[in-house]
Every structure is written in structure tokens, then in C-alpha cells.
Computed example of a mutant assay.
Amino acid sequence: MGVDVIVVGGGVSGLVTAVVLAERGLRVRVWTREEATETTSSVAGGLWWPYRIEPKELVGEWSTATLRVYEEFAERPGETGVRLVAGVMEGSRRSGLGPWSARLDGVRDARADELPPGHMEGVWARVPLVDMPAHLGWLRQRLEAAGGTVELRAVASFAEAAATARTVVNCAGLAARELVPDEGLVPVRGQLVVVENPGVEEWFVSADGASSETTYLLPQPGRLILGGTAEEGHQRTEPDPATAAAIVARCARIRPEVAGARVLAHRVGLRPARPAGVRIAAEHRPDGGLLVHNYGHGGAGVTVAWGCARAAAALVPDR
């Protein structure tokens, strides 16, 4: 069978972009150097919230488009891995959120009894919380149902993919730094701790955009995710024990019962951040083919996945 499009990258951005293209009738193949469960997307906490991502004038539309899709998916959580869960974004007020918040039903300033001791303000909202390993598996099934395929294959250059398909879509995440090349793409290291859930039902996030430390508790099926870090420029993929202990300590100040929770796993992911903003653009190759870029989502790839995928797919011609 011929191939119309090669999507390079098998994380959430690559799989969603491939799904959009395959369901449009194109013959799509995803080339990924690792299984979806080994990607940075699989490590992600999975909370929908526009966070550390540019350009702001486009992020709202991408985020809202993705929100609407997840709201539909949340009607089938056991199948899709997406649920709508209530929680608090500490340190914010409703009036300080971006224009995107006007499209978020029920968002409001948190009441005093909804905030941990010592915290003065926050925003309460019911938003999508995505069980990433389950969701990535479901996306692959949806892609295959549309006729697409996934192939484990490391890519040294986009020319390799261009030899197979006239259109190549770059969803390579941090690997785009060398493949494009784009020196403006930087790793932002995120470490988290997975524990048995001692009864936490609502999510909580306290994040300072200027700090390398964040505090979050994200209840996922069968586990609780504790975080985290945002260490710009750091590329260590091994969990650091001292960092893990600090994460648990910060989260225990929010929910004391977390301190004694049994640790199930430690996780590290390198977010592909691009201070200049997400890049969605098309380049005509000298050989007559097309290279479409969709990368630089930082820690918000889950939040903008469908909006960005549709924007990138709009640059891909039909057969």
C-alpha cells in the first residue's frame, strides 16, 4: 500500500495529527523511535490547562478546540481515558485567566474552604484529566481503525521519511531540535512521583511560571500523581531521590495523608519547550515534497493536541 503522509513522532501530538489525517482519508504512517508508553506524553500528568505555552493569541483557540473534543471523550472514560474532574488552580483568580476561560463552563474563584491552609486565592474548575497511558493506547487503536499504522523507527533526517511519502509531518517533540534543526527548542525536565491514592478525589495545582518547582496532585485511576519540576535546560532522565522527596513533602503540605502513601513509581519527562511558541508551518522541499511542522508544545501538548493537529493537518493537501 502507498503512503501519503509520514508523521514523525508517536507522542500525543503525533498520534492525534495522524488520526486527523487518516480520518480524512489519507494513508498515514507514524514513525516513532519508541512506543507511546515510553514517550514524554506518557509521563505527563494529563491535566487540561493552558500552561507555559506560546503564542498566547493562538493558544486559546487551540486549547478550546481540544477542550471540546475531550468533553466528548469524557462521556466514555473507560474507553478513552478522559474524565472531567474538579480541582483548584492555586494562585490565580478568575479575572486573571486568559480569554479562553470564558468558554470554560463553571469556572469560578475558589471558596476559602476549597483552599489549603495558608493559600489565599485560586480558581475552581471542572476540566479534563487524561489518563495518558490509556489515552495513548486508545489513540493508536483509533488511528489503526482509520487505516493508519505505527512503525518503530528512529529517524536521522526528514529526508528518510520524504523518500517514502511526499508529505512529512514533524511531531518529533524535543528531537526536532536536531532534525529541523531548531536551537530554540529547549528541554524542560519534569519529575513526578506516582503513589497509591489515599483518597484524593480532586486535583490541585500550584505553579509559579518563574520557578523550577511546582506542586500538583492529580488523581488518576488506581494511582495519584504527585509533582513536580520544570527545570529548563536539564536533560537528566533518571529520577533524583532528593527531588522526589521534596515533591512528596510539598504535596503532603497540601494533603497530609499523602506523606504515608506507598510509592508506585518515579517518572521523568523532557518537555519540548520553545520560547518563540509552537511552530505550525509548512515548508516546500527541494524535491517537491512538503514538510509540515507541529512542535514546541512544552508542557501543554495534551491541552492543545487537537487544536494544533487540525491546524497542521489543514496544511496537508489531499491526494
Rank of each mutant, 00 (worst) to 15 (best):
W100K: 04
W100P: 04
W100R: 04
R103V: 00
R103Q: 14
L104S: 01
L104K: 00
D105S: 14
D105A: 15
G106F: 06
G106P: 07
V107N: 00
V107Y: 06
D109E: 07
D109K: 12
A110Q: 07
R111A: 15
R111F: 02
A112R: 15
A112H: 05
D113H: 13
E114Y: 11
L115M: 05
L115G: 03
G118A: 11
G118M: 08
H119I: 11
H119M: 02
H119Q: 04
M120F: 06
E121D: 11
E121N: 06
E121C: 12
G122A: 06
G122H: 08
V123W: 08
A125F: 10
R126T: 15
V127Q: 06
L129I: 10
L129A: 12
V130I: 15
D131F: 02
P133M: 12
P133W: 05
H135C: 06
H135I: 05
H135D: 07
L136F: 07
L136Y: 00
G137H: 07
L139F: 09
Q141Y: 03
L143G: 09
E144W: 07
A145K: 10
A145P: 00
A146P: 03
G147R: 05
G147T: 12
G147N: 00
G148L: 08
G148S: 05
T149C: 05
V150G: 01
V150T: 09
V150E: 04
E151D: 13
E151V: 15
E151C: 05
E151Y: 05
R153A: 01
R153V: 01
A154Q: 11
A154L: 04
V155P: 06
A156F: 02
A156K: 09
S157W: 01
F158I: 06
A159N: 00
A161K: 09
A162Y: 02
A162M: 11
A162I: 00
A162G: 15
A163Q: 14
A163H: 12
A163C: 11
T164R: 14
T164W: 07
T167A: 13
V169C: 13
N170M: 10
C171W: 04
C171K: 03
C171Y: 10
C171L: 10
C171N: 09
A172V: 01
A172R: 03
G173A: 12
G173I: 12
G173H: 11
L174A: 11
L174F: 13
L174H: 03
L174R: 05
A175Y: 09
A175W: 13
A176E: 02
R177I: 02
R177E: 13
R177C: 09
E178M: 07
